[in-house]
Design a protein around this nucleic acid. Structure first.
Lengths: 195, 195
DNA sequence: CGGTATAGTGGGCATGTGCCCACACTAGTG
DNA sequence: CACTAGTGTGGGCACATGCCCACTATACCG
């Protein structure tokens, strides 16, 4: 039997291909054929490794969340030690893109995906707000440090950030928004955050 | 020749049918067949009244904007006279739904639509931010009255509101979000707005 | 080295979508 | 009462998408 390592390689290649398509052409271009073509393999591979295309997308979202989690955790830790004191906007911008594209963009584009995620993800974990929860954890740390006004609810801040990020990226025809725009929006939402 | 009134009637029926589908089943369900079926007429009608389906959608968006404009203007006027003093949240919620569903939802769901809108809408009018401009006008009036912190940029506030509204409605599987959620979010975004 | 199980390939089908087109219907006009 | 121009109808085509499946290639095992 061929190596199980190769199996994981293919899955990773498919995930990476899907992410490239998402970034380059948007969520509407993320078809099963586009993924396999971008990955450079035959279209049948997808069906052999995943029950159906929605299952692939669900695992794609989870994979993206898994890779964001240490990123967000690092930000939380850094906020605690004050290491990335001046990078509030920069750090949020990175999460912006991940969450907006990987989660909101996909879930908005494909109707059945949310239901599928509910089946796949362990019970009790809110699916759509998964990314928001991560950002909210980071924002809570920032607020505890006095960088964010104490009367702001981190959950709502995170939700607002994600929605705005989605519109920001979905509304620019694939072009990246200028850094200034993101910074202005983050400042507006988060309020009187000190650097 | 049949009456030109009937012609307008059919267009209105198609627009209304499309809006019902958007509210009930979401932007992904808005196909040409779904519209004609919902309107109770044959599928060929759409092609006779519009160059193609994207042209229909573009006019649908413009129609929605036309119907929102007096609504927003009334809010601006009311804000000037202080008539709807306590209804900041309520008024914004109404615009929330219109803008989020009619503009952001459609443009996010259909890739070619934005380009088509650029051809259709008179030059100089920003397409995606059309709804934002309307809301920004209202927010400017509110800010001038001291109901919104003077250091908030109405354009960014409006953009943030729209993005959040879209996520709010797209993330609830078609259910309306509770009024409390909208109010909390509006308060968070707009800041220390007085009632 | 032959056998076998598993991964990979691509032809093809069912479905849905937008669009075209020939035809039927209707309402004004001479 | 024909005639005609414009509207409404639905069959059907071309294309894309997800999925199935028979076939091939490859790696391990006796």
């Amino acid at each position: 039997m061929p190596t199980g390592v190769a199996l994981r390689e293919v899955r990773r290649q498919l995930f990476d291909a899907a992410e490239r398509i998402l970034l380059r052409d948007g969520a509407n271009a993320l078809t099963s054929r586009a993924v396999t073509t971008e990955a450079g393999c035959a279209k049948g591979v997808l069906h052999r490794h995943f029950a159906d295309f929605d299952a692939f997308l669900a695992e794609l979202v989870i994979d993206r969340i898994d890779r964001m989690d240490p990123q967000a955790a690092a930000l939380r830790d850094a906020a605690g030690t004050g290491t990335v004191a001046g990078n509030l906007t920069e750090a949020l911008t990175a999460l912006f893109e991940s969450v907006a594209i990987a989660i909101v963009g996909l879930i908005t584009a494909r109707d059945g995906l949310r239901a599928r995620l509910r089946e796949t993800i362990p019970a009790g974990v809110p699916v759509l707000t998964e990314g928001a929860t991560m950002i909210a954890g980071y924002l809570t740390a920032e607020r505890d440090l006095g960088r964010i006004a104490p009367d702001r609810d981190p959950d709502i801040l995170a939700f607002t950030l994600i929605g705005t990020a989605h519109l920001l990226y979905a509304g620019t025809d694939g072009d990246r928004p200028e850094d200034g725009a993101v910074e202005e929006i983050v400042t507006t939402i988060v309020g009187d955050a000190v650097r």
